[in-house]
């Protein structure tokens, strides 16, 4: 981390907010019916400064359902809309890293998903630094997160220290003419730790996974909440005659049995144990082999949101320390 940044007195936060609004609509964490959600705001007073949003922000680059192309007869017309620019404000480092991870899969290798690039280019990511973990489910300091943001805010009491992470962020901040200052702060120390060093060894060691199998409902909540779970399905929609319609990409979940269904009614991951294991290994091992880093950012949403509170991090820690 570099020390350099800028100082913004909190009472002048409105000026930053206006500068952000000049980029696009501002979406920030707002407490609403007990949940912290990312919602469009008009006034900085609406922002909730504590906590981590219940849902991740992945839908802003990869909507739940996205049209690939429309068709009429045999004529196809590609999706070619321009998404409106948005500022995602108050993202935690885990979510910021999730964007970088999703970029690896969908942006940095060919063929690209055309819509992903368009959504991504129209986003400004503004982080909010965690001095302390947001709750007992966070384990981000085990995940080697990096400084990936356009701008990031650090709370210093009466002031914000703002760091610039990209030319896009610099362009916005330049408008404010802030005083430069040096500041450094380590990421929050989480109580929850994940020991991922040699997870491969434990693939066949089913003792670790058995509790997961017992409690898992295959409901898919973990994959919906996860900021990097973007496995998808492709589906066609048409009118009754089938003469016109569209082909859509929509979120899917590897927790569902039919995810691996092939003809002959064979499920390649028909057992709950296999599905439970597959998701964790994709996060911690498979993705690492492909791209050199873990796919999990330690946001803890999959445990926080799990209806049976399966704490797979403890399962792994327990399994890997029993020696």
């Amino acid at each position: 981390m570099h020390k350099k940044g800028f100082c913004l007195p909190k009472k002048e936060f409105g000026t930053l907010f206006t500068a952000l609004q000049s980029f696009g609509e501002v979406i920030a964490p707002v407490k609403k019916d007990k949940f912290l959600r990312m919602e469009k705001i008009e006034n900085p007073k609406e922002i909730t400064w504590e906590g981590i949003s219940w849902f991740s922000s992945k839908k802003y680059v990869f909507p739940e359902k996205q049209t690939l192309f429309k068709f009429k007869g045999e004529k196809t017309e590609k999706w070619n809309e321009n998404p409106s620019p948005k500022v995602l404000f108050g993202l935690r480092l885990c979510d910021l890293n999730a964007f970088a991870i999703n970029d690896k899969l969908f942006l940095n290798q060919k063929p690209k998903l055309p819509f992903y690039k368009k959504f991504r280019e129209n986003l400004l990511l503004v982080g909010l630094w965690c001095d302390t973990p947001q709750d007992e489910y966070c384990f981000c300091d085990s995940m080697k997160l990096q400084h990936k943001y356009d701008l990031c805010l650090f709370d210093r009491g009466d002031n914000f220290h703002i760091k610039i992470g990209s030319p896009k962020g610099e362009k916005i901040l330049k408008k404010l003419k802030l005083k430069a200052e040096d500041y450094e702060k380590e990421l929050a120390k989480c109580e929850k730790k994940l020991n991922t060093t040699d997870i491969k060894k434990y693939f066949e060691n089913n003792e670790i996974w058995k509790k997961g199998e017992k409690d898992c409902l295959s409901c898919g909540t973990c994959t919906i909440l996860c900021p990097t779970c973007l496995c998808f399905d492709i589906e066609d929609e048409s009118n009754l005659k089938g003469t016109c319609g569209k082909r859509c990409v929509q979120w899917d979940s590897c927790m569902y049995k039919d995810f691996t269904l092939v003809s002959g009614k064979h499920h390649f991951r028909g057992e709950r144990l296999d599905r439970f294991k597959h998701r964790i290994f994709h996060k911690l091992d498979y993705f690492k082999e492909q791209f050199g880093e873990s796919m999990c950012t330690g946001c803890g949403r999959c445990i926080r949101g799990c209806p049976t509170k399966i704490d797979w991090v403890s399962l792994i820690n327990k399994g890997t320390s029993d020696k």
Partner: peptide, 19 residues
């Protein structure tokens, strides 16, 4: 190998066999 394949370009995750 036979798998459910949706995107065919290594994105959708359906056809993953281990990694």
């Amino acid at each position: 190998e036979e798998r459910q394949m949706k995107c065919a370009v290594g994105r959708c995750g359906h056809c993953m066999i281990k990694g």
